[in-house]
Amino acid sequence: MIELSDVSASYGNVPAINGVTINVGEGEAVGLLGANGAGKSTTLRAISGLVKLTSGAITFLGVDLASLPPHKITELGIAHVPEGRQVFPEMTVNENLEIGSYAPRAKADRASSLDLVYSIFPRLAERRKQLAGTMSGGEQQMLAVGRGLMLKPRLLMLDEPSLGLAPVMCDVTFEKVAEIHKMGTAILLVEQNVSRALTLVQRAYVLESGKVILDGTTAQLAGNKQVQAAYLGI
């Protein structure tokens, strides 16, 4: 469904990713793992157009993304839930969700998408009128994921959804993401919490210093000595 071939991108003169080649199939859940600064977030930002490629190509369902601005990429059905949640703090929960379906592809189905998001996250339904910036980190994370769902995405990209959350909220978030994946949405999950990520995804890539150093199925990676030593603490 989405293919990155030999993608490089940089911030100014500092290269952030260097020749990354990954793909996600229809309905698949794929992990992008690695330490802080390995280039995971940059990979997502390159896909959604927030960072321009210095070389390489990205195609989504046959469409070349490299020349498209972010709002056109969103319109194709790629939802990017950014790191650190980044909800619109001075807008209500409901307004945040509504703006999640701003793109023409999602606008007509806003009412049914809202129902769906509120049924997955009953907590958000209770807080409908509350300003997003006044909610707890876990609630903001639910909102950020829910806002992504409002796009009716074909591919949902999640950047560190567990970051800064209490373990209980973390469990809830991963449960919900698994639920969304079961409904048929492809998922590209960026996580530092490797052991938890491996419970959700079928395959994963491990990034280090802007390059893919390992890839394989969940079972292969969980059994890999290098992964065990570096990320699973075994």
């Binding site: 709002h71 969103t74 950014p82 001075e90 703006i99 999640g100």
Partner: peptide, 15 residues
């Protein structure tokens, strides 16, 4: 309003 609160994320909404 979304663009004034967070321009990058507003673009991710298709704005």
């Amino acid at each position: 309003r979304a663009a004034s609160q967070n321009r990058d994320v507003a673009q991710l909404m298709g704005i």
